[in-house]
Amino acid sequence: MSYNPYYSEIGSDSNVGMAAAGKGKNISATGKQYGMQQPSLGPQTPQQQQQQNGSYLPSASTNMAFQFGQTAFNQFVGQENISQFQETMSKATGATNSSVAHYFQVSNSYVFHKFKLITVPFLQKNWQRIPDSSNSFQPPRIDVNSPDLYIPVMGLVTYILAWNVTQGLNGSFDPENLYFKLSSTLAFFLLDLIILRLGLYLLVSNTTSPVTSLVELTCYVGYKFVPLIFSMFFPASFIWLNRLAKLYLFVAFGVFLLRSIKFNLFADMGNSADFSFKKGTVKKVNYFLFVYGFFWQSVLMWLMG
């Protein structure tokens, strides 16, 4: 830890809000630890780095390059994610909007409506989420268009178990397959998430929309377990029925993904007058989401299933 006389002042300044929330000393201490990693500390950062590194004294250009790199990296990961994680840790029990618990507030009717939305997305007219009073969105149990984490988590478990059941029905069940299937499914999932995040990071510039946060992208990526599980209901003996059903489900899922991401990505941009999106950006994002949603998802689900 660095010994900087200015440091404690900055740390306490940035955590006034959290300390005022009545959480006590622990949270402000963790807040200081997180605050050290944030690049926006101003003129004190070069001093800190020099003291952290001890014998290694960086030149001015190295320092600048390092800060530049860190800023870009934070932008890629999403600076809100770090603070979101911080808030999640502090309010793990409360069901506030910024925590992960917000995405688990589901009801039975929401889950059935979401299944209907994924399998038959052509009937839905309105894809925009309902905004909250406090500049955020309603939880999933009120709004069907809101993403949730319940279906992805349950879908992952169900998909692995159901896949092994079909293996067992074929007479080739192996307990090791549970482990291998989990590993491969998670790997495909992470690959998919990386590709989607990278594409949106490169194409969309500085949106305030929460769709680009990693949690919501995890939701959208995780919905592909639903068509994968549904396609298992069709028996493999009727080979053409099976292929047709898979084709329809993948196309429907592509439509769902394209619409639900696209309409919420540029939803709140029209209101703010100072921030105008170029038409080229919207076009590029549409092309990327089309290729991603239809071709790449179909290839991925064909590889997985």
Partner: peptide
């Protein structure tokens, strides 16, 4: 800048600077 190209340049620079620090 907010073009795709400048983002790509930033990303490459970020990876290179961070990896240099780790390797050092």
């Amino acid at each position: 800048e907010n073009t795709t190209k400048s983002k790509l340049v930033q990303l490459i620079g970020a990876v290179q600077t961070l990896l240099r620090k780790i390797v050092r």
